[in-house]
Structures are given as C-alpha cells and as structure tokens.
Design a protein around this nucleic acid. Sequence first.
DNA 1: ACCTGAACACCGTTCAAGT
DNA 2: ACCTGAACACCGTTCAAGT
Lengths: 244, 244
Amino acid sequence: MSPEPLSRARIIRAAIALIERDGADAVSMRRIAAELGVGVMSLYNHVPNKAALLNGVAETVLSEIEFTDDPGAYWTERVREQARAFRRIAHHYPRCTMLVVGRKLPATAALPPVERALATLRGAGFDGQDAVRIMRMFIAYVVGSVLREVRATPAFVDEEFPPAETDLSLFPESAALAPILNRNDHDADFEFGLELLVRAVAFLPRGRGAASPASAPVGRHDAENVDEHVTEPAAGPASGGTGG
Amino acid sequence: MSPEPLSRARIIRAAIALIERDGADAVSMRRIAAELGVGVMSLYNHVPNKAALLNGVAETVLSEIEFTDDPGAYWTERVREQARAFRRIAHHYPRCTMLVVGRKLPATAALPPVERALATLRGAGFDGQDAVRIMRMFIAYVVGSVLREVRATPAFVDEEFPPAETDLSLFPESAALAPILNRNDHDADFEFGLELLVRAVAFLPRGRGAASPASAPVGRHDAENVDEHVTEPAAGPASGGTGG
DNA sequence: ACCTGAACACCGTTCAAGT
DNA sequence: ACCTGAACACCGTTCAAGT
C-alpha cells in the first residue's frame, strides 16, 4: 500500500495531516497507523510513545518556519518579520498550533529562531540580559496572539459578546464596544500590538549600564533623549496590517 | 460517603482538584466519579459531557481571579495590577492553566475582566478601538507568559539550553548567553515585559483622531510631545519585579 | 531490525432499568 | 428528578511471536 518504508518522519507527517484534517483530539496511534496502512504496533518501532510523537509534530511544525527577514534590514523591521514568521506557521498549521505552544519543545528545534532573535537584538545594541528578556516578551506576545486566533476560529460564527442574556447595564463599556469586540480583524490586531512592542523596545536605552524599564516605570523624562536611540530611517505610513 | 448532593459545581471542584494533583492528562470522567464516590454515569445528570465539564473548569478558575487594582489608582498601575491578577490564578492553578487559555471560554466568564480592562483604558482617554486592541495586546502577553511559565515547570530541572550536543560555533549568541537563557526568573521577566508594554501604551496618542501606532512605525517625532500624555505622578524605582 | 496480533487496562458515552 | 450497571466502540501500550 505504501511504497516508502515506515519512518519517524513519515509517521510525524501522517500525524500532522490527520490533526489538520480532523483536529488534535482525533489523533490516535491506531488512526495514524490505519492512515499509513500498517499495524498499530509498527509505529512503536520508530517512536517510543504517543507523547514523543506529538513532540515530534511540534518540532517539525516549528522547523518549517520560513524566516524572511533580511540581515541587512534595520533591526526593528527584522524583529517584526521574525514575529510574523512565527505567526505564519500558526496559520499554516492552525490545528497544530495548540500542540506547538503547549508542550516543552526539544531545544534543538527552538535554537535557530532563538539565535536569530538574539543576534538581531544584540546587533541593535542591547546587552545580553535585555536581549533575552525582549525576545521572551515578543515570544509571549506572539504565542498569546496565535492562541487567541486559533481558538476563535473553530466555530463558523463567533459567539456574540457580550452574551445575549447579559444585564448590559452592569457592563456598559462592553455593551458600547460590542461591535468592535465582535469584529475579529486578527491581522490588524496583531500588527497593532507588534508595532507597540517594537516601539517600546526601540525607545529602551541601550549600551553599557542600560536601565531596565522597571527601574523607572513610565518615566516622563526618558522621552527627552529618545531621538538618539531611534535611528531608523523615517518610514512612510505602514500598511495598516491587513496584508496577511 | 459524600454528605452533599452531587452538583455541577461539586463535580467541577473535584475535576480541578484532580487536575492539580495528577495533571490534566489524568483527568477522566471515571476518575472524577470515583473521587466523588458515585457511579460514572451520575456525572451526566449534571454535565452533558467531558468537554462541557472542562469548559466549566476553565470558567471556574477564571472566575476566581482576585482583582486588587484600586479604581482610584493611576490607570497605568491599574493595568499592571489587572495583568498581575491574571498571572496569579495561573500560579494558583498551574496545571489548569493550559486548559483555561486553550479553550474558548464561555463569554460570561470573560465579561467582568474585559469590562474592567475596557473601563480602565477608556478612562485613560483611549477611544474604543484602541482600548479593545490594547486590551487584547495585554491579554496576549499575559497568556503567552503564563504558558511559558507552566510549560517550563513540569520537570524538576530545566533542560540545558543550548543542548549539550550542539555545535556551539553555529549559535554564538545562544552559547554566549547560555547562563542567562537557563536562568528562569519568571517574575522579573514578566515585570520587564509588562513595564515595556505599559510604557508603550502610555506613550500612545489619545483622544479623538488618535493615530494607531502602525500609521507611523517607530516614529522619532512622537517623542517630542510625549510629556503631555504621560501624566502619572513620578514614581520611585520599582521593586524590580521579584516580589511574586 | 522491523513488523504484528492478541491481550490488558483503560477511555467517553448510549441505553435501558431502577428509585 | 436523579442515579446506575451493562454494554459498545474506542484508547495506549506490553508482550510474545513472527520475518
């Protein structure tokens, strides 16, 4: 039935296809085996157990990130592009996304993106500690964003918010903003937050002895010498973020 | 064996206890029933199925958020406290966290925190569209952060990063920053990003006709009139974020 | 080395029967 | 209205047997 021999890679590919077709809940060793035309137990010659297989799925999906950032581009744009690259695989494998963000990834899969992010931030002048924290902040934002996107999608029509039976007088802001809350322009939302993050990072002092932001919360004086840090060539108005 | 009658609430409480004790994978209808000293099928008189039960778990956990922000406090501090409140329940129910962030919550559970956040941001002068987007940005950041924290915790000792077999010359930044990458000061990391986000938002223009950040990426000129937007009374150096 | 069927200890849920 | 045991169609994984 299958010309190619069974292998870890082939099993993982079948698992990914199955998850994208029928959802993560539908994946089972028996079903994957059936899909491949082999006995269930044959899988265990290439994968120790189901958890390891799912780790392989996460690893494989993550490894397929296609980074499009140009090493010669200004660092803020590189950061944006790296964040967008993560988001793209989440869109390419929507039903695997929970799996990718939900399990502890093998370090080898995480290493290349991490190295790229750190190199970009170090090149921008941040010290090691700040570079690591800034990277983690971006990852947290991207992970939280794609999670919201794949979670909102499963049903055809979004549940209305606030729910119909709600006493709206208790939630006046939500009531007033219902049309906005029910609109889901994921691209625009993502770009809005991304730009805010990039901007916050660009305003951060750099170089030796740079202060962490927590050392002077929302200080009004940091703005005074901000020009010396923001050296990106002036850009025209951005796309507005609906281009994904 | 159990004096109190069976009820949806009691079943959910048992499920939460079970998840926190044995992990989310260990939860099953049969095990919850055994824990309650009833037959499996008795559960179905109060809960339509397992998925609904898990939704109830997510809803209940979320409803236990204790907001500590003072409505009279400056809005930036209110935003910080709301973000910290979310993070606190994730720490209180670490093994339920994936469940809470991973499923589409019943809108009734999400409504009170949403209303509070929107009221805070509207009170700060943001228009409805910006308020919604800023809120979503904070939620994405908090969700991504707690996900990282609960994911990193299961094993006693963190896997070393980069992995031992790696050719370090290919990943110089990761190699140089290995000590920092392997340190996991979740409190400090979280506060660092939170402060950066708050700062970015505080610098955002407000009022009618306020521009979205994407309309002028990392503009160097926004800094000039920033003082008029940042009116929080000057604060002393913050704790540094290790107080959680 | 790789494959496999039978078997074991689990699942969620339907159904029909009880009170 | 609430509870329940038996039954059904599934699970992941161990084991012993094949090639």
